[in-house]
């Protein structure tokens, strides 16, 4: 089965690989995982709080070529968009653009989730900065597996 040229291009030359300062109040970080394959993806956005425009976006993905290409494309697309516009991005847009095969659709879902999760993180930080009570974190019913560096 042949992968599309766009997919291969994003995989071989991923755009916006890197990290933004997650302590910056204008930076939202989204960290998501794919239970079906064990891939992890982090996507970060830097938003101008006045205009709500996403001025920078970075990602780091440990996963297959389709997951890397999906997150690379996602960072390209959200840059220059408002938070509201970025929120409207759908995984099906990524599927179409990269011509992802059916078995790789979950990679685009992961990228969409990463964008939404980064936006949620940014909005939460803004709410805290405005002095509004942050949303309570979801309760966790399981102890974390200890992993030391």
């Amino acid at each position: 089965m042949a992968y599309s040229d766009k997919l291969i291009d994003h995989y071989e030359q991923p755009r916006n690989v890197g990290t933004l300062d997650k302590e910056d109040p204008n930076v939202g970080s989204g960290l998501v995982g794919a239970p079906a394959c064990g891939d992890v993806m982090r996507l970060q956005i830097k938003v101008n709080p006045e205009t709500q425009i996403i001025e920078d976006a970075k990602f780091k993905t440990f996963g297959c070529g389709s997951a890397i290409a999906s997150s690379s494309l996602a960072t390209e697309w959200v840059k220059g968009k408002t938070v509201e516009e970025a929120m409207a991005l759908k995984n099906t847009d990524i599927v179409k653009e990269l011509n992802l095969p059916p078995v790789k659709i979950h990679c685009s879902v992961l990228a969409e989730d990463a964008i939404k999760s980064a936006i949620a993180d940014f909005r939460k930080k803004q709410a805290v900065a405005r002095g509004e009570a942050p949303e309570a974190a979801a309760p966790n019913d399981e102890t974390i597996v200890p992993l030391t560096k």
Partner: peptide
């Protein structure tokens, strides 16, 4: 519809391990 891993601390630990390995 497998369990979604929603524990940010777990995902963070995995991310850090993958980065350290890289």
């Amino acid at each position: 519809g497998e369990e979604r891993e929603n524990d940010p601390a777990f995902l963070m630990a995995i991310m850090e391990l993958r980065e350290a390995l890289g």
